[in-house]
């Protein structure tokens, strides 16, 4: 195929795509106008029904809780996949990285970076836990809290060494926490079934005050499990990649 033929095919296909795109755009509802019945209905009943004032969490972990189980397991499988692809193969051995260009002047981690990372680690852990345990009250949630907790471990790596990072996040414990997080969510759903309710139906007391930390029953519990699962999954992924970069493996 000559370049000019290729250009013609592109132009025709591009014009077709643009036409369909504009056609689709012209049929969209106005910006900010949501025409469906679902949103207003949820907004009217959600707080009274779930006792959670974080309506987004009420949707994620209750009304559409079954979707979120799937999403959580997507992350679980992704982290497992990274661990499997980067596992040590037979005939590979580990040694610490040897600087291939020893004459190059590598600047040491500046004490400013270490200091800032150290200062932020505590507050980030606190914020992460706070987010993961307050899904029922405001726009917090297990996912946001989990990724923030994982960031705290990256800060630990930045403020110290890889070995410190490993000491704070031993692979066995990270693996176990990830499994407990993912399994906990599914187990809450199965518990509801065991009580003769629908899968993931809220079976815990909803509390008295809407939006209190103790309110909303399983929404708060699920958010907590999602939090530890997400944190462990991201710590696992970062740890695997750090190991790949800092420890060289070769066939022996």
């Amino acid at each position: 195929m000559t370049p000019s033929q290729r250009r013609w095919i592109f132009l025709v296909a591009g014009a077709g795509l643009a036409a369909f795109y504009l056609w689709g755009l012209s049929g969209l509802p106005g910006f900010g106008n949501y025409p469906g019945p679902y949103g207003p209905a949820i907004l009217r009943i959600a707080v009274a029904q779930t006792n959670a004032t974080g309506v987004v969490s009420a949707i994620n972990f209750d009304y559409r809780g079954f979707d979120t189980v799937g999403e959580e397991f997507i992350l679980f499988v992704a982290a497992t996949g990274v661990a499997i692809v980067l596992r040590m193969l037979r005939g590979e051995r580990e040694r610490s990285a040897v600087d291939e260009a020893a004459d190059r002047n590598v600047p040491p981690t500046s004490s400013a970076v270490r200091m800032v990372a150290l200062l932020f680690t505590g507050p980030v852990v606190l914020a992460g836990w706070w987010l993961a345990s307050h899904a029922q009250t405001d726009p917090s949630g297990g996912f946001q809290g989990g990724v923030m907790l994982a960031t705290a471990f990256v800060l630990i790596y930045l403020s110290g060494e890889f070995l410190v990072f490993k000491r704070f996040s031993p692979a066995d414990i990270t693996d176990a926490v990830e499994a407990v997080g993912a399994g906990g969510y599914a187990a809450i759903g199965v518990s509801a079934v065991a009580m003769g309710l629908a899968y993931l139906k809220d079976f815990l007391p909803l509390g008295q005050v809407p939006g209190a930390v103790s309110s909303s029953g399983t929404i708060a519990l699920i958010s907590f499990f999602v939090g530890i699962e997400v944190a462990a999954a991201f710590i696992l992924i970062v740890a695997e990649l750090l190991e790949q970069t800092l420890l060289i493996r070769q066939g022996g």
Binding site: S140, Q144, V147, T151, V238, L241
Partner: peptide, 19 residues
């Protein structure tokens, strides 16, 4: 969408670049 903001801040600005 403040909930998505919180996730995007850590994923998009920190974890993805680090990976």
């Amino acid at each position: 969408a403040p909930d998505v903001t919180l996730s995007e801040l850590t994923i998009g600005a920190v974890l993805l670049p680090i990976v």
